[in-house]
Simulated scan of single mutants.
Amino acid sequence: MKIFIPLFVSLFSFTISAQDKPVRLVEEKQKKRTILYVKNDTNEDKSVFLKVNPTGYRRSAQRPILKKIPPKSKVQMLILIPLTDTESYYTHTLIVNDTLQAIDVDRSKRLKKGDSL
């Protein structure tokens, strides 16, 4: 009986960690292109930051992408077109936040000539 409890706990924790992430990058390979999507399986809006480092693709995709992903949806982020006769691969960084933060800037207080900081 003492052996079954730790075995059950370890199997239970393995099944929990094996579940998919609620917001993830989805790759769809087609004949001459690879389309990258972000899929949001939660019930809330999520904001994502995606940075792709491609090698062997026609268009440079190194600029970061910031997008709001609605709940229960899949949003296209990037299309990669591989070069011929070249090995193509990429690495990515995906950061998920709950919401985009609005930055409130007070522009009414401007420095005048002669004012010091």
Score class of each variant (00 low, 15 high):
L66I: 15
D45T: 08
A18W: 00
M77I: 08
Q101R: 15
Q76G: 05
S17K: 02
A18N: 00
A61F: 07
S60V: 12
L94C: 06
D106C: 03
K39P: 02
S108K: 12
R58Y: 07
K113A: 14
S47T: 15
E28D: 13
E87T: 10
S73E: 01
I103N: 15
L36Y: 03
F4E: 15
V48F: 05
V26N: 02
N40M: 00
L66R: 11
Q76A: 09
P70D: 04
S17W: 02
D115W: 11
G114V: 04
D41W: 04
K72V: 12
P82W: 04
I95C: 08
R24H: 00
E44L: 08
L50S: 03
Y37D: 07
D115E: 15
L25H: 00
N40D: 00
I5M: 11
T42L: 07
V38K: 00
T99S: 12
S73Y: 03
V38Y: 03
D45I: 13
K74G: 07
D106Q: 07
L78K: 10
D104W: 09
N53V: 10
S10V: 14
T99F: 14
P70H: 04
L111Y: 10
V52S: 01
M1E: 08
R59H: 13
E27V: 09
K21Y: 12
K2C: 13
Y89C: 09
T15D: 07
I81L: 09
D115A: 11
K2P: 11
F14A: 14
K2E: 15
I79P: 05
T42Y: 06
L78H: 04
E28N: 12
V96Q: 04
V105S: 10
I35K: 13
A18R: 00
L7G: 11
P70G: 03
K51Y: 13
V9F: 12
Q76I: 08
V9Q: 00
P82R: 06
K72M: 11
K31R: 08
D106Y: 05
L117Q: 12
D45P: 01
V38M: 01
L66C: 07
K67G: 02
D45M: 09
D85S: 07
N43T: 13
Y90A: 03
D41R: 06
Q19E: 10
I3F: 11
T34V: 15
V38T: 03
Y37V: 07
K39T: 11
S10Y: 08
F49E: 01
